[in-house]
Design a protein around this nucleic acid. Structure first.
Lengths: 224, 224
DNA sequence: ATTTCATCTTAATATTGGCTTAATTAAGTC
DNA sequence: GACTTAATTAAGCCAATATTAAGATGAAAT
């Protein structure tokens, strides 16, 4: 596994490099954002460890521009400050995890590994389920290669189902997805949406578990 | 992501619900441990936010019983007291993180996300009993590899039996599982459900201890 | 502003499946 | 044998969900 470490503090960087190398990971160490950019654009890395305080700029901004250039590699942020704002901003701006200095090297390793695991799952932006192909970025659903047009709520529901295959989702859970906090409204709008989804994806696409909720089912060639 | 919020203070609960829902998380709010138990046992949640001071009991005790019932969902404890002892006890008893009131909603969110991350590595919780494989999350029962469809009440009963193997459960206890605590008992509905369960799982699946109640028995290849 | 169009919600009705009831049979207990 | 408890059936009921269609909303286009 190839890791890019962006860190200007030599002591910390050395510690990380030594430890990770010892664990069988290939670490490339750079000390500025400029160098980081060069490396990222000219070579392949599985992960990036990013310190936020760097001589030639702010790590968050760099991360933003990285994302805007469609680099999707997982980034773990190192931050000295324990302020909430930093964490929040970091996570929202496209970081995948963060670690507050000082930290335990073993924890760093654990997080890197879990990061890798997670990211290798969602490398592709499309989810496949039976004959359905769903593009998370473009919100496009292809059934048997044919584009299915979905309304906003249908889209939300389908996403939720695809993100929780095998799982029984209660009506309240699904209502929360659509309407935010559930005022526990007695409305069957949800049922109508499910009905419409079934018309588009086939009757078996959504199973009902009476008294419990709904679950994603089989999506096959033909809406019957 | 589905979150169960157990909190009896409406003001705090509302704030949390509104904020988290706004962040795209599905929050289910209950105000008592009893309700929490019902929800946990009948639906899926990724996380639980647990206040410790509740009208119908102590949160720590509830957490203990939850763990003893093999529910492994990550729990974040909310505590008013800032005493170290409380935190320690909480963490030792199976909590995964804690937050002291008053807290910043953004910090709550950050902690929830990291909690989810850490826990996503865990194994799925399935109970094995003889030839039966029961998945608590999916509410799926496989007998000899074949899916058995269970009604809501059958599902509840089976769960209860699997969570209390070896133990004799009185009819009243089982009725409480289905109908909550109430002592009107002139109905044999429970017997009918047990009869139907036996039809699906085999005659020996549930033993009758005459005059006392029922106990989980052997579940073998074929319903005879 | 007004029209147009799609979607969302409401509401009314149909349907289904599971729950309970109740009556009967079987199995223990004294 | 009389009594108690549990098992077994089948019928009716009811709540959860499905289905429709009509009205409400809201955004884009003219």
């Amino acid at each position: 596994m190839f890791i890019l470490l962006v860190e200007d503090d030599e002591v910390i960087a050395d510690a990380i490099c030594t430890y990770l190398a010892h664990q069988g990971l290939a670490v490339e160490h750079v000390m500025s954002l400029e160098a980081a950019t060069t490396y990222i654009e000219s070579s392949h890395f599985d992960l990036c460890i990013l310190d936020l305080n760097l001589p030639d700029g702010n790590g968050i901004d760099w991360l933003c521009s990285l994302r805007s250039k469609r680099f999707s590699l997982p980034v773990l942020i190192l931050t000295a400050s324990d302020t909430i704002d930093d964490k929040i901003t970091g996570l929202k701006k496209g970081a995948d995890d963060y670690l507050v200095k000082p930290f335990d090297l073993r924890e760093l390793q654990a997080r890197l590994l879990s990061l890798k695991r997670r990211s290798s799952d969602r490398l592709s932006n499309t989810i496949h389920h039976g004959m359905l192909q769903y593009d998370l970025e473009q919100h496009k659903a292809l059934l048997n290669g044919v584009l299915i047009s979905l309304s906003r709520n249908e889209d939300l529901l389908l996403q939720t189902f695809l993100n929780n295959p095998q799982r029984v989702l209660t009506q309240n859970q699904l209502k929360n997805v659509l309407y935010g906090v559930c005022d526990d409204v007695a409305s069957n709008a949800l049922n109508v949406h499910i009905f419409n989804l079934r018309k588009k994806l086939g009757t078996q696409a959504i199973e009902t578990i009476r008294g419990l909720g709904f679950r994603l089912g089989k999506i096959e060639t033909k809406p019957s």
